[in-house]
Amino acid sequence: MAITVNIYYCGAGGSVRRFVEEMMASGTVEAIRAEPGNLRYEYFLPLADEETVLLIDSWEDQRALDAHHASPMMAAIAALREKHDVRMTVERYVTDEAHNPAADSAFVRE
């Protein structure tokens, strides 16, 4: 059961973009991607809102996510959020183990 967390980081005056740039430049993003159980850690820019960045953060299971939350990376992330005055909202999704990808194939163009 994989867990995906969508985090919407919001700021003002470009602060959220500076936050993401510093996350990447500091090596924090690469360190998180290297953590055991991390499946995805990627930022996206919504076209309709220049002051928001979406992070899609996926983990193999709750144990991997809990280990990440207990890691030193969380303190680094919190410090950068504070520094750049970034706020966040969170959505959490769990993989649908019963999902049949063939059922969606008529709607997917590869």
Score class of each variant (00 low, 15 high):
Leu39Val: 03
Tyr43Leu: 01
Lys83Val: 10
Asn100Phe: 10
Ala67Arg: 10
Asp66Cys: 02
Val16Trp: 00
Ala79Gln: 15
Leu54Gly: 03
Tyr8Val: 14
Tyr41Val: 01
Val20Lys: 01
Ile77Ser: 08
Thr4Gln: 08
Leu45Cys: 09
Glu60Asp: 08
Leu39Met: 03
Thr28Phe: 04
Glu22His: 05
Ala12Cys: 12
Glu110Thr: 11
Gly11Tyr: 00
Ala98Thr: 15
Gly37Ser: 09
Thr52Arg: 08
Val20Tyr: 00
Leu47Asn: 04
Arg63Tyr: 11
His99Leu: 10
Ala70Ser: 12
Thr4Ser: 14
Met1Val: 11
Asp57Gln: 10
Tyr8Ser: 13
Ile77Cys: 06
Glu42Asn: 04
Ile32Val: 15
Val94Phe: 07
Leu54Asp: 05
Arg40Thr: 04
His99Asp: 14
Pro101Phe: 02
Glu30Arg: 14
Ala70Ile: 04
Arg63Leu: 13
Ala12Met: 09
Ile7Lys: 06
Tyr43Gly: 01
Thr89Leu: 08
Ile3Met: 05
Met73Arg: 09
Val94Ala: 13
Pro36Gly: 10
Trp59Asn: 04
Ile7Asp: 10
Met88Phe: 13
Tyr93Asn: 09
Arg81Ile: 00
Val90Met: 14
Met73Val: 08
Arg17Trp: 07
Ala2Cys: 01
Gly13Phe: 03
Val86Tyr: 06
Arg81Leu: 02
Asp85Ala: 15
Val94Pro: 02
Ala78Gly: 06
Glu35Arg: 05
Ala64Phe: 12
Ser15Lys: 04
Val53Thr: 01
Gly37Lys: 01
Pro101Val: 08
Val20Trp: 02
Met73Gln: 14
Val20Ser: 02
Gly14Thr: 11
Ser26Ile: 06
Met73Gly: 04
Arg33Cys: 12
His84Leu: 08
His84Lys: 13
Met74Gln: 14
Gln62Leu: 02
Glu35Tyr: 07
Arg18Asp: 15
Trp59Ile: 05
Phe19Leu: 06
Tyr9Pro: 03
Pro101Thr: 11
Pro72Trp: 06
Met23Gly: 02
Tyr9Ser: 03
Asp57Ser: 12
Asp61Cys: 05
Ala106Gly: 04
Ala106Pro: 00
Ile32Gly: 04
Arg33Ser: 14
Arg109Thr: 12
Arg92Cys: 03
Leu54Glu: 03
Leu65Ser: 10
Asn6Glu: 11
Val16Ile: 04
Leu54Arg: 00
Ala64His: 10
Thr89Asp: 11
Asp61Lys: 01
Tyr9Cys: 02
Val29Asp: 00
Val86Ile: 09
Val20Asn: 01
Ala75Ser: 10
Val16Gly: 02
Ala98Gln: 14
Thr4Tyr: 06
Glu21Gln: 12
Thr89Gly: 12
Glu30Leu: 13
Thr52Leu: 01
Gln62Lys: 06
Gly14Cys: 12
Thr89Phe: 08
Ile32Asn: 03
Ile7Glu: 09
Tyr41Cys: 01
Phe19Cys: 06
Gly14Ile: 10
Ala103Trp: 04
Arg63Asn: 13
Leu80Asn: 15
Glu82Gln: 15
Met24Cys: 07
Met73Asp: 10
Ala76Cys: 13
Ile77Asp: 06
Val53Trp: 00
Ala70Trp: 05
Ala103Cys: 02
Gly14Met: 11
Tyr41Phe: 12
Gly13Pro: 12
Ala106Gln: 07
Arg109Glu: 05
Asn6Pro: 02
Val29Cys: 01
Thr89Glu: 14
Phe107His: 09
Ile7Thr: 15
Tyr41Met: 01
Ala102Arg: 14
Lys83Ala: 13
